[in-house]
Design a protein around this nucleic acid. Sequence first.
DNA 1: GCCGTTTTCGGCCCGACTGTTTTCAGTCG
Length: 585
Amino acid sequence: MSTNADLASLFEQAADLLALLGENSFKVLAHRKVARVLEDLPQDVASLISSLDDLPGVGESSAEKIKEYLRTGSVGEFTALRQQVPAGVVQMLAIPSLGVKTAAQLWHEAGITDIATLKQKLDDGSLLTLKGMGEKKIAKIKANLAFVGKEADRVRVDIAMAIAQSYCALLEQPLKQGGAATQVQYCGSLRRGRETIGDLDILVCGDAAAAGQIAERLRGHSLTGQIVAAGDTKITLRTRADLQVDVRIVPAESWGAALQYFTGSKEHNVKLRERAVRQGLKLNEWGLFRGDKPIAGLLEQDIYQSLGLAAPPPEVREDHGELEQAESLFKANASWQLVTMADIQGDLHMHTTASDGSQSIDDIVAEAKRRGLKYIAITDHSKSQFQARGLTVPRLIEHVNAIRAVARKAKDILVLAGSEVDILADGSLDYEDDVLAQLDWVVASPHAALAQDSDKATIRLVRAASHPLVHVLGHPTGRLVGTRRGLEPDMPQVISAARRSGIAIEINANAHRLDLRDVHVRLALEAGVPICINTDAHSFDDFDQLPFGVLTARRGWAKASDVLNARSVADFKSWLDSRRGAAHW
DNA sequence: GCCGTTTTCGGCCCGACTGTTTTCAGTCG
């Protein structure tokens, strides 16, 4: 899979180089598009070698380059491009407010080919003679130099969500003049539920006259570092932790259009606007227009309906075929029906003080009931997880008995005695079959040897997924968002194995994991493998991670019927009964 | 470079903000 990422980065780099060389901007864009397609690809690009042309956005020329890379490990044309542009010029693009035009100008007109020289010339005033280069621009570039090298990483969705909610709450408070904002909503990749967020977009319904007051209020928020720009309809700020927040002020009649526009994705919007143009209409953040006449704009769904589409939920707006689906749904007079928080009936992966959790069996059952769950599985770690106090077989038997004792007296909730059994490096499980057979529920997860190569990882996970006593594959790759790559198996093979043995695959809802990831969720569902959205709760707070798992499921187009723990207790039990390895209750 | 319900050629989404300008270019999303 890292082949995909490496190739994507090559195409992205090529796009920068072409732009710096003054190439046609649509050609530049085409390269960025290929980079994005490769990044989003759920399977290894090498497995598609004979059908690369079928990927939307990948034409004959790019397909050849991809093949060349797979054959030789490099792309001759890209290598040649790199030789034409000094590396330091490319590095300058990392400076905010300094784009390709300026970088090319500095290179050609001032002979600047590295950042050190740029710094020096910014200071000595010699750049003022360049066209379009004034005091303010120079000051801005100087200030932004600080961002080079410590490029703000994308922020995990849970962190971004907390920040967004804090700013939204602030903006919802009444203003001194002009009344309260009637509506406030975060948009962008956060609303689409991506696992990481690059910046925050917040939409405020209100009068442009209030922009000044809103800016002042934002300035006073404890998280705000500096206000970067402040106009009548847009205020941009950076938090102290360097996350960019864009706040837009829109009038009520444009609320829906703005919501649609700022939710994106960019690629989804491009497709949508092209569709509007084909129908003789124009779509922008102010509304959908025929000539000057507004057709829709108040509500987001009106925009889509006016274009003959069933409004797709924000989570699927990635230009991954959702407009085609939206069109068929519209024609069938149907709507999108993705799984929601309210559908979730059970949680089938949780820990107690028996291993590394901080809650007792009684506490966890009470908390699950309080949150309206109808069934849970208690799944502490297996014996190899020494550091997590994994259970030896005697301790496991004792623990299972304790769980069953609680289960017998628990009312209105089904409590299963299970285990999160380690998938060892070779794909065998951490307990013998006769031990596993005594459990109601088995989550099989990898925890160690997460750096093994792709082939070994595939064999390992296929073996575990084929084990007759396993019910669900837990956090299949072991990746940690932004910090650990985890296993990179050939996911279609793992999914096929799960389908053959009739097991489910987990979406671990914890925002650190979100494993299975969105694109693989979709592959699993297309193969007919049910998913299971589990919190892997180690404490009461971890129950709050569930929404991130649901968002990820929705990004994979999951309906409630695709989700095992969205079934009623009775339906869940009959699924369990249909599995080999009789359950005990 | 990519693509096709006008098209295999000729388009390719659209606007806000800033800074530099006397009407627009660059950057960003």
